[in-house]
Amino acid sequence: MIVFTQAARDRLDEYLDVVRQSCTDASASDVDEVIADIREHIEEELSSASGPVSAQQLADVLERLGDPRQWEGSERTTPRTGIDWSISTAALLISAMGMLWQLPLILVGYILARVRLERANVNGPERWLAYPPLVVGATAILFVLLFWPYGCAVAVGAPGGFLESFPGALSKLPPQGTPAYWLRVYAFASIVLGAWWVLAGLMLRRAQRVLAILLPGVVARAVAPYGNRIVLGGVTVALLAGLSILLT
């Protein structure tokens, strides 16, 4: 047990008070932990001192520890206030509404969750609010990026769509609305999809920035190494679709 002179004790209390004030953004338990660590550090430093520790001996240790105001703002941790939680809560609710009602809302929930995660380190129970809209949104974006030609096929082939206005655009089309018609439309869409995958796979390494904007960093990094496989998948899909058109 280290014994301090009264002057040293006063100086230490004063130093730790300033530390406490400068860490006001952290939760109380964290501040207590930081102060306990600093106390332990001081006691380790002064463990070899014989007799009561003087203010001067303590001053040397405190000088090496640094200005007690050094953490003001710089070690700001996630303030657990309602306003910040509310962003994550809104993201989750909007994303849930998107799944049940209007799909584009998934994107809104996703953007809110990303904004929240960009602005703070989200920990503890709040993760269960912020991560689901992020996962759902990222999955939806990946799905759209990979399969958008099929969505276009529905729009193009549906009654009143492009093919009704320009029936000669795709050769040998069966009567509109029949299963054979849709098979043919999807076969053409698969060729487009295959070509898109080839292009996307080739671009993947060069389009990292775009990918990082669209998807969270972890997902973008996870997808990046699969460029060659996506190219191969695209070639296979396009070839199979082409063969099915030629053979039917």
Partner: peptide, 18 residues
């Protein structure tokens, strides 16, 4: 490490982030 004390709040934050 310019100030030895820099490390302690950081350790606390790393702990909070699990």
């Amino acid at each position: 490490v310019i100030s030895e004390g820099t490390v302690y709040p950081l350790l606390s934050r790393l702990k909070r982030e699990a």
